[in-house]
Amino acid sequence: MNGLVLFSRRIWPQLLTLAVIVGLISVMFPGFFDISIANGRLYGSPIDILNRGAPVALLAIGMTLVIATRGIDLSVGAVMAICGAVSAWGITEGYGLFPTLAMALSAGLACGLWNGVLVALLGIQPIVATLILMVAGRGIAQLITEGAILTFNHEGLIFFGSGSVWAIPTPVIIGVLTGAIVTLIVRRSALGMLIEAIGINLRASTLAGVNTRVLLIAVYMTSGFCAALAGIIAAADIRGADANNAGLWLELDAILAVVVGGTSLLGGRFSLIASLIGALIIQAVNTGILLSGFPPEFNLIIKAVIILIILVLQSPTMRTVLVFFSSDKAAGIDSEKQKETVAP
């Protein structure tokens, strides 16, 4: 019970932000909540947010763990491109679905291993270490696709982008499942605490006997694996691997999702759920802008302003101010309400 209260206290700002943004969109665009079923798949704007947000949400899962160790993974966008390229190549070469998926996921793990070795064994700063793959990764992807968009028509692979299970789009299922599995592993085992310990104080953790090198490598490999999943989804979505554009700049959206989710870039305490909500917040903003019908010249400005407002509201200074202005009673009611929202 105590844990649940703490948990809801941790994520209520993110949930509130998401609710406000969704509320704003539905005011501007009244048909927002219309959900129907088309082609055996749920269809509607909220589904779009979940579906389009899935790749960034997946990246954010790995990114959260990396950031918790006081690292950063700039390569995830490029890793998406590589893994998308590998899956398109594998399927067009006729390796069959499961070998192809295995190859693509292994490629992601290999990329993560590379990053992890640079960071954990060679002691290169994460931002520099992952920058290498960020720059080189698209080149590798282009080598695989030979510079063109490598298209495929394999229904099995396409399923991962535009298929559905029980009317729920596959990317959403993959995102939710991955989030749930990683959360379970991290919180049911001691990994979460050890990762946080590394992020807060690497040297002290080493001295306490934490196997910091192995854990760091594992964390970067998790990030690579999540990027591989996102890459497969992105390629399956457009039935082709676009080495130039797949996952382009998504590393920044993933980092933003983690930050909006309230995990500090200085490492330490993290919340995967909050990062996932952060990813949904970002996608809700994107979808809202598209639905709004504003000229595209305003897209980036609107997005920047909204994100700025979110970050300012979440800043420690602002929280102090808010606490100062709100009476205890109001705060109590507020958190009661939040508990109800979270409990189910």
Binding site: R52, I149, D237, D242, A246, L290, P296, N299
Partner: peptide, 23 residues
């Protein structure tokens, strides 16, 4: 709306057009 010359964005933006214009 801009689709950045890419398939992914073209698809995403078209999805929103469809929603916004009565399916």
């Amino acid at each position: 709306q801009t689709g950045d010359f890419t398939r992914t964005k073209g698809k995403e933006v078209m999805e929103s057009f469809l929603k916004a214009e009565d399916g």
